[in-house]
Design a protein around this nucleic acid. Sequence first.
DNA 1: CGAGTATTTGACGTATGTCAATCGGAGTGG
DNA 2: CCACTCCGATTGACATACGTCAAATACTCG
Lengths: 250, 250
Amino acid sequence: MVDTQDSPFTAQKFVDRRKACSACVNCDVRTMAVCAALADDELAELDKIMTSRHLAPNEILVTEGDPLKRTYSLTSGMLRLSIALPDGRRQITGFLLPGDYLGLADDEVHSSTAEAVGTVQLCSFSTREMHALMERYPKLKDRLHSFTRSALRQARDNQMILGRLAPVEKLASFLLALSARAAEHKLSANPLSLPMSRTDIADYLGLTIETVSRSFTKLRNTGMIRLPDPQTVELMDMRALEAVAGMSVH
Amino acid sequence: MVDTQDSPFTAQKFVDRRKACSACVNCDVRTMAVCAALADDELAELDKIMTSRHLAPNEILVTEGDPLKRTYSLTSGMLRLSIALPDGRRQITGFLLPGDYLGLADDEVHSSTAEAVGTVQLCSFSTREMHALMERYPKLKDRLHSFTRSALRQARDNQMILGRLAPVEKLASFLLALSARAAEHKLSANPLSLPMSRTDIADYLGLTIETVSRSFTKLRNTGMIRLPDPQTVELMDMRALEAVAGMSVH
DNA sequence: CGAGTATTTGACGTATGTCAATCGGAGTGG
DNA sequence: CCACTCCGATTGACATACGTCAAATACTCG
């Protein structure tokens, strides 16, 4: 049954566009993503049900309420997850980094909208086939469950940030958390890249873009950060930032 | 067999106090809780590893950072989950109702503090034994995973509420959501009981108790709710409440 | 270099937090 | 049975942090 996959030539010959990341073994996120649950020799199974996909900046991947047909594993770029009110107000519930999984919270329908921030590469799986594979490899299911628990903890931390922190505190904790996550995902943690717009940050932190901007300049004027350009932050004084974020006493 | 907790001495003699809810099959939450994953004849397995426990009002069950030794299934009463900042600010991340499970988000340590709101009854499981049972009965694991996904969706909805709604909107959506959840958990949905204090509601919605109180009177003065007493709300006009909560257009 | 867009800065008003007083019910003791 | 206290909830007066509206600046891409 695992005929073609055992021989790497086929995959190498044709560079199937839909499988840009076809050599799963060599994938950038091999050690971080769902697939890390599988051994190299089991990876073919996943490869078989995977198709790879590219998104242009701001392209919509799924919309809130869409029936859940496929789930995704991000291999490069950044996705923003959001929910919207009928009157247009928007809350961004999270930003996904390479290795993160899309669809953790969903049963029958997508509970949030997912859009590409910049250009994005991802692996796409039919939920039916993914479920079958999870039955075959319980450790795959366990890893996804573990991802879900971690997403829940993060969502609860966000509740604290949204409910109890002042604007500068929100921004400081956002920068620290993103930097920490960047490190975990093997991206630059210190000259930190902010591919999302100020509007996105505002909709993530429950603020207006003006307040976000003013908070950036406050952190800059106190020497805690530098802003070589609006999409790049240098964290100059982590301890001070942590203090502002309300994470240490004082 | 109804063990009135009044006389602990007699109770110890005839009925094992640690198993007040020992007949799992007859449990109030049999159809809602984790145990619903198991058939009647499999329930004995769960019963074997379960001990039952009682909490007095405001008693602390677990504290943020505690090592995760046991998980719990609530059988009666209400728990509040919260996280705190070093400076004392508190965010309540959720209220658990009978049938809800405590420990969904946690791996090694408890990520939030859990306290009883009023008096509480719950089932307690060693994580080790529960894990073993989940290996035996995958449907048990699946149900817990399903609970976790649902908690994640709820946490994300809360992010919207905290980040983007005005105080009255927050309160209206809180009342509607609690009423809906009460119905699901076989509690009264319309004369809705609010066992938690105004301070708890404030810490849940990211407000001060004064603003919560003012929001209650606004909803009362517009005829959307009645407040026979501070712990009881009657929802008089659901459609109007939904409009205020920002869930319908207008 | 110029048009269009994103970000920053400024001026101002208001919604919500802060501080303080009052109300109301539950429990206690005379 | 009625004061009295205690604590939670409500109401009031006031201040200010943040949102709103508007302008200026900086960056991106033809």
